[in-house]
Design a protein around this nucleic acid. Structure first.
Lengths: 221, 221
DNA sequence: CGGAATCCTCTTCGATACTG
DNA sequence: CAGTATCGAAGAGGATTCCG
């Protein structure tokens, strides 16, 4: 099943046997946001090629990191989702994303960008710093992409779609969202579409603030 | 430089552009233990092939993750070592190693094994749990491989070679070391070559205990 | 001898076309 | 919509050779 394994009795080598091939961790990244259909994954991963996606999903399923399931009727469509082992990758994927973010140049220049990729980094940054206070839900719509954060003392989560009840709702374009995430822009000095408390949004953004292309903030385990 | 980049403005995708190719993170794993010569890396990574190692090292150097330096005279040999960015990968490499370890079968069956790979996992496990108390140095010699742990309140480190002054010295073979690491064996019930306090060794092994091939201990960020 | 560059074969990737 | 089949191009792995 793994024709090109490292053949080392080592946790890292084994992790890389399971996750180290091209695209695999990006598939996991997409599934962190929730169950996904085959076609959605294909669209979210420009350049992957359908055979590769099929191969990777098969391998991930065989290794117990991803499972296929069928959404309850009336949807009744097949989706892929993370298993428990797969969910445990969240802090590692988040940590890698933060590490890579600081080494990233500011300029996309031809690169595709998605709010959910930024949001994943924001979640990871927020988990590092920790949220103190009442559970807070923040819904954002960025260039039509809808997702929401839930900040609580026992962790920050992120999902696609719309929450039942949001404390704050933010609508903007991707540039503005990035500027808010990096702290370049604050909810106050911009005329943004915000429903709810700008203060609450500000607090959340501070906890989840990203640093892009900057030397080094100290990483602790 | 990276002809096969993901082209996504995403921290994770960028991290994988820098680290995601085959062998790259295993090279980082080796360098976590200290600076290494080209030939040592070649020997520590069975199967890599000399051109691949040269390519990877060049890419890692170009990306500021690894740097070449020359050991002070009289050694005066060229070695590769991690930069600050490279050092920051330690918790991530450790986390991946622990994740992979639990999905690893007990059986090596033809796989090569090294005490230092186990030791890296032990360090990561120990950092999760944390060490309370006085700084403690433990030297181990496993099938001739010498390395040592330094357990302190602000983190656990591991190096190859011999410490100036060890609180405990342990000498055994790899099987015994693995059994001690997993808690299958304790310093008391084995007749081992131990210099120093068995109690201290026991405390350290408890903090750094590994679980191999077991369902799931809760991972926190 | 340590530190690579070269050559050659095999596998994997990525894109397109095709099928249940 | 959810994959499988096919094929040229790029990457991996091994041996050998070159350089200092």
């Amino acid at each position: 099943m793994t024709p090109r394994a490292y053949g080392q009795f080592c946790g890292l080598a084994h992790a890389l046997d399971l996750l180290g091939e091209r695209w695999t961790l990006l598939i996991v990244r997409e599934l962190i946001l929730g169950p996904r259909r085959y076609g959605e994954l294909l669209a979210a991963l420009p350049g992957i090629g359908t055979n590769l996606l099929a191969d990777r999903l098969k391998a991930l399923e065989a290794n117990g990191i991803v499972q296929r399931s069928t959404l309850p009727p009336p949807a009744s469509v097949a989706v892929y989702e993370l298993t428990e082992s797969g969910e445990e990758l969240l802090p590692l994927v988040g940590g890698l994303a933060l590490w890579g973010l600081r080494l990233l140049d500011e300029q996309p220049e031809g690169e595709t960008a998605r709010a959910s990729w930024m949001a994943l980094c924001m979640m990871a940054a927020g988990r590092r710093r920790g949220w103190r206070g009442a559970e807070t839900t923040i819904a954002v719509t960025v260039d039509g992409e809808r997702l929401w954060f839930c900040l609580a003392e026992d962790g920050i989560t992120i999902s696609e779609g719309q929450p039942r009840d949001a404390d704050v709702r933010l609508t903007c374009d991707r540039r503005t969202f990035l500027a808010l995430a990096t702290g370049e822009l604050t909810p106050d000095d911009a005329r943004l579409e915000i429903e709810g408390s700008r203060r609450t949004l500000q607090r959340a953004l501070t906890v989840m603030r990203l640093t892009i292309g900057e030397p080094a903030m100290h990483l602790s385990l």
